[in-house]
Design a protein around this nucleic acid. Structure first.
Lengths: 337, 337
DNA sequence: CTGTTAGCGCGTTCAA
DNA sequence: TTGAACGCGCTAACAG
């Protein structure tokens, strides 16, 4: 554990520090012979250049930060997976920060990141976040930023998201293709923008396939669990019963599943079900349940790619990409991811 | 985006660089008045000391690395959650690296980490990893290491794991408490050490409650899905039927669930089921399924705590803790975490 | 081809 | 109470 650096190597070899440095970078200025000697000794001493020293000198860290609300959530876990993969390919390092949806934490993290630790940030904002001065400050320091999933449109930079409208359309068409005629839409809250977009997709699909829209089939399930259960039960016991259900979030699919158990309905024979989900586990556990999964892995990869691309040629760094990906339909055999 | 550092601040205030540095560290050597002036300007200019420069100087990075096989897996996601939380509390930064269970990647990552980037590592080894020279090299460089979950016993350092034996015992007792008399154990592979430990716990529970052990109730399910399904079906259709099932891994619980569907058996009325799982989602989706969940969050926190504790007082750094945590039983109402 | 020199930005002596 | 000077370890411009 005796310390080894350019200086000690140079001393041991009887050459100058800069010769060692250049040799290790395989500079054309150095003779093959000395290169050999240097490289051999370096390997023997298990030498690695100190990255902090070289970062300081080169003014770039090859490190990025990922800021997400949480990680114990399949979506962000997969996104990070994608980010890390691209980072390794590009020889970048990834710092991870969780906000737990707290505005204070988000601010505090951004403060910390102004210390020259990183070259860029990939960020999914906390739902609590209303103002964005902390983000502006980051960018002021010349740190590149790419938003993914939960973005702030007020900030002009690259964004990678998914298309809830198209996803809602696809999900509904999937049910239609399986022969469904009376498709219900289980809504969580008409205040939620994603919910509305998904519903719009649902309605578009009905229109496209000449199925009359029946407002009674849109069920507002509210926030309380018992309420959702009740509403769904009412839906499934009403005289002119529905033959398929599109749950706007996974929780509502679970409730549907439980109602079916009580009523003795079999999925998918008696009722087809599809739901949005940020995990592929739902459909794995319950093979009869189709799910629409956000392409989290892909989102992470794309976001990271944009960032690294700009980092490598810093001059052209007007990040104005706005990528909207499609969700993926997962049925029984799919492996997801 | 004009650059701001000690030098520019000093110039603007008409004092020396070292005065600014000391003032910002609230040194007793500096008069209150100058401190005021310095701090005010620093805030105004939104100054943060460059961490790479100060790390270089102070010879510590306040950064750790977390190396895990994957992240799109609830266990590691929760563990990282715990680690990140403790890191934030201690004002440390967390770099994340995924091996995807590849030995080469693990080695390559460890190589990278010898460059003075970090003070310590939290690691869950890849299953492919057989030799551990790369890990030894890391430690040679004075980097502290704590293993969690997937450890290498050959290496003498702190380890945080869960107790599969006790967990298996608890799971079985849970079934017994619910009135089960003939409990089957679904085994994945008798070569798997965790499987064997869980089975040992199962047998211990039977012994403890004076239930005779019936070897016919231990079902080797093999690796192929169809095989598992078949074996479970045989089990559940045999004349002297079992009234409860302990699945050693989640996949086998899913298969059991499907067999029940085919046979028209209701869980938990006709059959009680408990399984090991690294996610709480299983039990959420299927409320009738009890699960034994590794306390991933807690494991992460404990591992991080040990590491930081040693990092703060580097002299006493003989990491010889060996913490074995218990798994947690999750029934319907529990929220997990 | 090799060495000398000058920083990157900061913290820490030691003098003044 | 302040400032000048040095060095953490490395890279890069410039001499030789």
């Amino acid at each position: 554990m005796s310390k080894v650096n350019l200086k000690t190597l140079a001393a041991e070899l009887g050459v100058s520090v800069s010769t060692v440095s250049k040799a290790l970078q395989n500079s054309y200025e150095i003779s093959e012979e000395t290169k050999q000697r240097v490289v051999t000794l370096a390997k023997q001493r298990n030498f690695r250049p100190n990255v902090y020293a070289s970062s300081l000198r080169r003014q770039q860290t090859r490190t990025i930060a990922v800021i997400v609300p949480e990680i114990a959530n399949n979506f962000f876990a997969f996104a990070i997976n994608g980010i890390e993969e691209i980072a390794q390919e590009n020889d970048y390092h990834v710092l991870i920060y969780l906000t737990h949806d707290s505005y204070e934490k988000e601010v505090s993290i951004c403060e910390h990141l102004q210390s020259g630790r990183i070259d860029g940030v990939l960020m999914s904002v906390s739902t609590e976040t209303n103002d964005y001065e902390h983000i502006a400050k980051l960018m002021d320091k010349g740190i590149l930023l790419v938003f993914f999933d939960r973005v702030r449109h007020e900030i002009e930079t690259a964004k990678v998201t998914t298309d809830d409208f198209v996803s809602g359309l696809n999900a509904t068409e999937h049910l239609i293709e399986q022969g469904a005629k009376r498709i219900a839409y289980l809504s969580l809250s008409s205040k939620l923008s994603i919910d509305n977009k998904r519903k719009a997709g649902y309605m578009e699909a009905l229109l496209k396939h000449n199925i009359e829209f029946d407002p009674n089939l849109v069920v507002a399930c509210g926030n309380q669990q018992h309420e959702a259960y009740q509403r769904i039960k009412e839906l499934l016991t009403s005289p002119n019963r529905t033959d398929a259900v599109f749950a706007s979030v996974e929780k509502l699919a679970t409730e549907t599943y439980m109602v079916c158990q009580e009523l003795g309905l079999k999925i998918p024979n008696d009722l087809k079900v599809i739901c949005f989900s940020n995990t592929t586990i739902a459909s794995l556990l319950n093979p009869s349940l189709s799910t629409v999964v956000q392409p989290a892995f892909e989102i992470g990869k794309q976001a990271a790619n944009i960032l690294f691309q700009h980092l490598e040629r810093k001059n052209i760094s007007i990040l104005n990409e706005n990528i909207i990906l499609k969700s993926v339909l997962v049925a029984r055999e799919s492996t997801g991811c």
